[in-house]
Amino acid sequence: MATDSESTKRAGAFDIRMVIALLIGVYGLVITILGIGFTTEAELAKADGLNINLWAGLGMLLFAASFVAWVKIRPLRVPAEDGDQEPTPRSE
Rank of each mutant, 00 (worst) to 15 (best):
L34Y: 13
A13I: 11
M18S: 09
T8K: 05
R77Q: 06
G83I: 04
G59E: 06
R90L: 10
L22Y: 13
F14I: 02
K46H: 13
G28F: 06
V68G: 11
S5Y: 15
R74A: 07
G35T: 08
T3Y: 11
M60K: 08
G37T: 04
P87C: 04
A42E: 13
P89M: 06
G59M: 04
G35I: 03
L54F: 03
V68S: 11
F38T: 05
D84C: 01
L23Y: 13
M1V: 09
V30R: 12
A69P: 06
I33P: 04
D15F: 02
E92I: 15
F14C: 04
G35F: 14
L54W: 01
I52Y: 11
R77C: 01
A21Y: 14
V78Y: 02
A56I: 03
P75V: 00
L61N: 01
L22G: 12
L61T: 01
R77V: 00
S7C: 09
T40R: 02
L44I: 01
E6F: 07
I20Y: 14
L58H: 01
W55K: 00
R17E: 03
R74C: 03
V68A: 12
I73M: 09
V30A: 12
P89C: 04
R74T: 09
V78P: 03
W70L: 13
L23N: 15
T3Q: 09
D82N: 14
A65W: 10
K9L: 02
I36N: 07
V26R: 01
A80H: 02
T3M: 06
F67P: 07
E6D: 11
V26S: 07
I31T: 12
I36Q: 09
V68L: 15
D15I: 00
A11T: 01
R77P: 02
Y27G: 11
D48S: 12
G35N: 10
V68I: 14
G28P: 07
R77F: 04
E81I: 09
M60I: 02
F38P: 01
N51L: 00
A45K: 05
L54R: 00
L29S: 15
I33C: 05
A42S: 11
I52M: 02
I52P: 02
G12Q: 01
D48C: 03
L54H: 00
A13W: 11
A64M: 06
I36A: 08
V71E: 10
A11E: 09
S7T: 15
F38A: 08
G57V: 00
I24N: 13
I73S: 08
V19H: 14
L62T: 14
P75M: 01
L58Q: 02
N53F: 08
G25M: 02
G59A: 04
R77H: 10
T39L: 03
A65P: 10
R10V: 02
V30E: 13
D48G: 05
V68D: 07
T88P: 03
A80Q: 08
L29G: 15
E6Y: 06
T39F: 03
V19C: 05
T32L: 08
